[in-house]
């Protein structure tokens, strides 16, 4: 494969204890809070509030039944899934060609265009929430999945452009030239040659699109009511200023976080090669 400079495997060094321990520490630190959330979701409130943490306890499924019955987390998970998958797909369809153009073509104002893409991510949702609300009401889009999908594009297309542009740039130019000689037009080159080679980058930008749209809270809070409520909105419905039923909160938290974690783990192999990010100077 021409996939450049990917590192050959181990050079056959032996077992290194220090290295092992450090890696283990990283794994533990990353996983522990998540582990703690999951175990808490199986505890009764009494066990959670005890001042010496209960490592061994009688697990209960009660928190999950409440999460499904009272908060209808099932419906909101489906909403989130629809919104996140659609946004991811559309972001890729729009972003990957744009990234390719930025990586491969020369034109005036390219750098500014790249920067404009990126700067779409810097806009604070707090201030555009009101205009989005007004316009959504105007077009009768309040409380629909469509409005969330459209808005999420504004911060996911930039990510796709960013990650993919770098991937396309790493593909040797000679390949394009060879293909041109064989009579490929630029669209065919993009589709048949560049895209397959940039697959890791596409995968990684898909992960991040998915993560960012799945986790978005502020727009979802303002623009949804009941029908299009997403999972993070449900996760915050406990901020009633009143009680904190930790078991139920953590059960909901687990249910909200689990799909995106599973999705990410499935594609995490691509993270190694796909996550090079640069800038267009």
């Amino acid at each position: 494969m021409t996939s450049p400079k990917s590192k050959a495997g181990s050079t056959g060094q032996g077992f290194n204890v220090g290295h092992f321990i450090l890696l283990l520490v990283i794994v533990v630190v990353c996983v522990f809070p998540f582990y703690w959330m999951v175990t808490t979701s199986f505890k009764e409130q009494g066990a959670i509030l005890s001042s010496t943490p209960q490592i061994i306890f009688r697990p209960t499924l009660g928190n999950y039944t409440t999460a499904f019955q009272k908060f209808d987390i099932g419906a909101s998970l489906i909403n989130s899934l629809i919104v996140a998958l659609s946004t991811t797909a559309i972001s890729l369809i729009l972003g990957a060609p744009a990234a390719y153009a930025i990586a491969r073509f020369e034109f005036k104002g390219k750098r500014d265009l790249w920067f404009w893409f990126i700067s779409n991510r810097m806009i604070s949702p707090i201030v555009v929430a009101l205009p989005f609300f007004l316009i959504a009401r105007q077009f009768h889009l309040l409380d629909t999945q469509l409005v969330l999908i459209l808005i999420y594009l504004t911060f996911n297309v930039p990510i796709v452009v960013w990650i993919c542009a770098d991937q396309f740039r790493n593909i040797p130019k000679e390949l394009d030239e060879a293909a041109t000689l064989e009579g490929y037009n630029s669209f065919a080159i993009f589709w048949r040659i560049a895209l397959p080679l940039a697959a890791p980058g596409i995968a990684v930008s898909a992960i991040f699109s998915f993560i960012f749209s799945w986790n978005e809270l502020l727009y979802a809070l303002v623009l949804t009511r009941t029908n299009a409520k997403t999972a993070p909105v449900v996760a915050t419905s406990f901020l009633s200023g009143y009680e904190l039923p930790w078991g139920q909160i953590m059960a909901t938290g687990t249910l909200v976080a689990l799909p995106v974690i599973i999705f990410s783990i499935i594609v995490s192999r691509q993270l190694v090669r796909g996550l090079t990010m640069g800038a267009i100077k």
Binding site: I26, V27, C30, V31, P33, F34, M37, I207, I211, W214, N215, L217, A231, P232, A235, T236, G253, V256, A257, V260, I261, F263, S264, I265, S268, L271
Partner: peptide, 13 residues
């Protein structure tokens, strides 16, 4: 794989 978990966890969570 473990490194993916923190950044995939919903911010509110």
């Amino acid at each position: 794989v473990a490194l993916v978990i923190p950044m995939a966890t919903t911010f509110a969570v």
